[in-house]
Simulated assay, not measured.
Amino acid sequence: MLEVILDILKETTIVGQPHELKKTKVQKLLKILDGEELSAAELMDRLQLSHKPSFRRNYLNPALKLGLIEMTIPEKPKSRNQKYRRK
């Protein structure tokens, strides 16, 4: 019986949730960036996050891809002086 339930759960997909979660996270990022230029560390601090890869995957990269924010030094994306601002 448990095997049947496990098989059903493996085939089940949650519709809409991941996209909605990222949308909410990007909105939080945009609120913090309103009128300011902040580094990734400053953004993480204000969002009360500590895991950099998750922050980049869930907040920063989606906002950049959607064109909602921009880098202050786009020619050097890995610069230690890099900051981000709303477009």
Results as ranks from 00 to 15, higher is better:
L47S: 08
L38N: 07
K65D: 14
S50K: 12
K23M: 11
E70F: 02
S54V: 13
L68N: 07
G67D: 04
E11K: 15
I32F: 01
L68F: 13
L9P: 06
Q17P: 00
Y59D: 01
E70R: 14
L64E: 06
T72A: 12
N58D: 15
L49M: 14
L64R: 11
M71W: 00
K25A: 09
P18G: 06
Q17E: 15
I32Y: 00
Q17L: 15
K25Q: 15
K52M: 14
E36N: 12
N58W: 03
T13K: 13
K25I: 03
T24L: 08
M71L: 13
T13G: 01
M71F: 00
V15K: 11
R46D: 05
L68I: 11
D45R: 15
S54P: 00
D34Y: 10
T72F: 01
A63W: 03
A63G: 11
L33Q: 05
T13L: 09
K65Y: 09
L9Y: 07
I32Q: 01
R56A: 09
L21K: 15
K23G: 03
L60T: 13
K10T: 08
L43S: 03
H19W: 00
S39I: 03
L60C: 09
G35L: 02
K25Y: 11
R46Q: 15
L29C: 04
K23S: 14
L66V: 08
A40N: 06
R57P: 01
G67E: 03
G67S: 06
F55D: 10
F55C: 11
Q27G: 10
L47H: 10
H51F: 10
E42S: 10
I14E: 05
S39M: 09
G67V: 08
L43G: 11
M71I: 08
K52W: 06
I32V: 15
A40R: 10
S50D: 13
A40K: 14
G16Y: 03
Q48F: 12
L60H: 06
N58I: 02
L33H: 04
L9N: 09
P74N: 06
P62E: 05
T24V: 05
Q48A: 13
P74C: 12
P74E: 06
T24Q: 10
L64K: 09
E70Q: 14
E37G: 07
R57I: 09
V15R: 04
A40V: 10
P53Y: 04
N58P: 01
L30F: 02
L60R: 08
L30H: 01
I69M: 00
V26Q: 02
S39W: 06
L60N: 05
V26R: 02
E42Y: 01
P18N: 07
E37R: 12
L9H: 05
K31Y: 10
F55I: 10
F55P: 09
L60M: 10
L47W: 08
S54A: 13
I14Q: 05
R57H: 05
P18F: 01
G16D: 12
L43F: 02
I14S: 04
T24F: 07
I69N: 06
G35N: 10
M44H: 05
S54L: 13
Q17G: 00
S54W: 04
T12H: 07
D45M: 07
